[in-house]
């Protein structure tokens, strides 16, 4: 670190520890740029899905016959709540409460794991009724889009777990705060993508 950063007299760490150093600022801005790129990447998958909706699928394997609203609603609630707990973790990080930050991050991880478990259950169910990656163009587009989101959730879980283990006994400082903050941005972005998935893939698939 090139120079000392000003500490907040109450919390004992800088007011925005994730952006207090040049390195932190660079990570913050660069990560947002990455999310801008991810937006386009997911858009290409959404466009493909919308174009291929129900294409090549037999009547009993079409979107309005296979999607279960209850499970999707549960998954939505899990992920949405995990986005809030991630916010609470970051608020506690800025207030220099490492214990509470870790608690809320663990809650976030548990909710995320619940979501992932439900998604795996859903995919296994589809596999058994014959809706697979290779069963139709609709199947390919569906699994590419939803599976890619699921892979993001998996990566986010591993990322936050690694950060927690690595920094478990460390105080919050300008070195690890940007790491936590950027991982929470990633987690919110996963929820941003899911909002479009539950609206466009599932709900729209049920009415079409």
């Amino acid at each position: 670190m090139a120079h000392a950063v000003e500490k907040h007299p109450v919390t004992g760490i800088p007011a925005n520890p994730e952006k207090a150093t040049l390195e932190g600022k660079n990570k913050y801005v660069a990560f947002w740029f990455f999310l801008g790129g991810e937006t386009v990447l997911f858009a290409s998958l959404f466009g493909t899905y919308v174009g291929l909706l129900n294409s090549g699928a037999p009547e009993e394997l079409r979107s309005y016959n296979i999607f279960e609203m209850g499970l999707v609603f549960l998954m939505t609630m899990l992920l949405l709540t995990s986005s809030l707990t991630s916010v609470l973790a970051m608020m506690n990080m800025k207030a220099n409460n490492p214990g509470r930050m870790k608690f809320w991050l663990i809650v976030t991880l548990l909710l995320g794991a619940g979501f992932l478990g439900a998604e795996i259950y859903e995919f296994i169910h589809y596999y058994h009724i014959g809706h697979t990656f290779t069963s139709s163009a609709f199947g390919s587009a569906f699994y590419t889009l939803v599976g890619f989101h699921g892979a993001h959730v998996t990566f986010g879980l591993l990322w936050i777990t690694t950060l927690l283990i690595r920094n478990w006994n460390r105080p919050i400082d300008v070195y690890n705060a940007p790491k936590f903050y950027v991982s929470s941005l990633y987690w919110h972005f996963i929820d941003v993508v899911w909002v479009f998935i539950f609206s466009i893939v599932y709900l729209l698939g049920m009415v079409s």
Partner: peptide, 23 residues
């Protein structure tokens, strides 16, 4: 950040519209 995100959203809308119309 806001500029780049909006650029991403702009390209995203064109991408979805193009794929929707082309397939």
């Amino acid at each position: 950040i806001v500029g780049m995100m909006w650029l991403g959203i702009f390209v995203a809308i064109i991408t979805v519209a193009a794929l929707r119309l082309l397939i």
